[in-house]
Design a protein around this nucleic acid. Structure first.
Length: 316
RNA sequence: GGCGACUUAGCCAAGUGGUAAGGCACGGGACUGCAACUCCCUGAUCACCGGUUCAAAUCCGAUAGUCGCCU
């Protein structure tokens, strides 16, 4: 079977993915699926730097504004929705372009990671979390050691979240997650793809981040968060753990000052960008697009279009 | 001009004679159902010069810088 074409455009936050994505979609008859864990949520526009309808220029976008903030979103649901949309896009003879900074989500689709069969077991998760809280992280980790030494060796005891998932996986499937991961890791992609990572020198990117946060403040991020709280959102929701939201909530609920909250957002966004670099650096088969090496956005776009045509044999 | 205080890694900061805590930042890394999450790793010889002492960031003196007060 001929593998289907897939374009991925990612990179650290604030690097300028959105602008490029529209140009690509227009030139290559593409439609955009957002690979962003926060932009799926409605009412969260400013803090997620979400693309505005008028910026879309008629290009169809998926997985943007699809969920209420109270709904939990995760890789597995992302994957299934994304696949479904890709199918639709292919059926119209168009090309899906995955755009967004959540590397984990991209990976799940690109390598068709298997998430089937299990439901999240919140009760069990909570039980394990409590266990760790009372008996200590090491004690929980010891439990993992008993059933899956390989995972235990790979996961640091303090990384409680991952230890819990490994234990949950075993309870649900009776298999070791380390074995599962190993298998998944060997997979080749089912797609004929180009995986672009847009980048900029660190200092420039950090300046852009700082400026962007200042802009969010001016545009009324505080107000946006206020109205989310009025809608009934609480800090423990997945959506409210997004950068810019948890910090402002802290300020609004009196645990921090507003000025300090905005400083924290800048700082944490920089940290986030750094983590994204780490992620993309170790992904295999990625094509780095160092923005500063192109004369301008126009040149960058032209390069991308030609590169896609060459590798994906797209005619249009 | 005089008097006093201070001077420890990029920043904050313990340590007051026995051989440099910690936090933050920066940098690096992990990550396969919460991922804008969660987690891990990483740095100095203590302003400078001289002295006392077996031993000094820690005591003494000089120099420089910073801050405060006074004339």
């Amino acid at each position: 079977m001929q593998r289907q074409p897939l374009i991925i455009l990612t990179g650290p936050t604030a690097v300028g993915k959105t602008a490029l994505s529209i140009g690509l979609a227009k030139a290559l008859n593409g439609e955009i699926i957002s690979a962003d864990s926060m932009q799926v949520y409605r009412h969260m526009d400013i803090g997620t730097a979400k693309i505005k309808p008028e910026q879309m220029q008629g290009i169809r976008h998926y997985l943007i504004d699809e969920l209420e903030p109270s709904i939990e979103f995760n890789v597995a649901t992302f994957q299934s929705k994304c696949r479904q949309y890709m199918k639709e896009i292919y059926s119209r003879s168009k090309i899906p372009i995955l755009v967004g900074g959540t590397g984990f989500y991209i990976q799940s689709v690109l390598y068709s990671v298997d998430f089937s069969q299990t439901e999240t077991d919140n009760l069990y998760r909570k039980e394990l979390a409590d266990f760790a809280k009372h008996k200590g992280n090491e004690a929980l980790h010891a439990r993992l050691m008993e059933i899956d030494k390989k995972s235990a060796d790979a996961i640091h005891p303090n990384n409680v979240k991952r230890v819990i998932r490994a234990l949950e996986y075993y309870k649900q499937t009776g298999h070791k997650i380390s074995e599962h991961n190993e298998e998944q890791h060997k997979k080749e992609s089912d797609y004929q793809f180009r995986y672009y990572v847009l980048s900029l020198p660190r200092e420039i990117l950090y300046e852009r981040i700082n400026r962007r946060v200042d802009l969010m403040k001016e545009e009324g991020l505080t107000k946006e968060v206020k109205s989310l709280l009025e809608m009934g959102c609480t800090r423990d929701m997945v959506s409210m753990q997004g950068l810019g939201y948890k910090e402002i909530i802290d300020a609004l609920e009196g645990r921090d000052t507003l000025d300090h909250a905005y400083e924290r957002i800048k700082q944490e966004t920089r940290h986030f960008a750094k983590r994204q670099f780490t992620w993309f650096r170790r992904e295999r088969d990625v094509t780095w697009l160092e923005k500063e090496k192109f004369a301008d956005e126009e040149a960058l776009l032209r390069y991308c279009i030609n590169d896609c045509k060459e590798y994906l044999k797209i005619e249009k």
